[in-house]
């Protein structure tokens, strides 16, 4: 870097706003997408609590179910679901595209890379739903 002299006066270095993610919709969507991680951590911990209650006894599990039925918990979980869907859609639109390009070494239409993921997602959701609800 040059040492500044009187003939090369100082440059203006603009500072970045602390709230840069509010500057446009793409940045905000990015910040929201990344924030999904906090809900992932929350839900994993919640699942551990559920496992602990399951492992203790039926009374403890009933108490856990009552806790989950609290309106505030339902609202938090609805928000978590929204964040998981945002994560899933952004993930399926980005990551398989990178992997496909790496494997095929040439540009591929996004639909070819993303579509299989949506099919797997759909299938996995159905199968898990059957297990979770006790049908299978």
């Amino acid at each position: 870097m040059p040492q500044y002299t009187q003939y090369q006066p100082k440059e203006h270095r603009p500072k970045m706003s602390a709230y840069w993610y509010l500057d446009n919709w793409h940045y905000l969507r990015y910040a929201l997408r990344e924030s999904s991680s906090f809900f992932v951590a929350y839900f994993c911990v919640l699942t551990l609590v559920q496992l602990a209650a399951l492992g203790t006894n039926a009374t403890r599990y009933a108490r856990f179910e009552a806790f989950m039925a609290h309106p505030a918990m339902i609202i938090v979980n609805a928000i978590a679901l929204a964040f998981f869907l945002l994560h899933a859609i952004t993930w399926f639109n980005l990551v398989p595209r990178v992997m496909m390009r790496q494997i095929l070494a040439r540009p591929t239409p996004d639909i070819i890379s993303s579509a299989p993921n949506y099919l797997v997602w759909f299938g996995a959701t159905i199968i898990l739903a059957l297990f979770i609800t006790g049908v299978l």
């Binding site: 839900f43 699942t47 989950m68 978590a80 998981f84 994560h87 899933a88 997602w121 996995a124 979770i132």
Partner: peptide, 12 residues
């Protein structure tokens, strides 16, 4: 997360 967590939180 993308494949499995939505259905978990949806039901439980």
């Amino acid at each position: 997360v993308a494949f499995f967590l939505p259905v978990h939180v949806l039901f439980y």
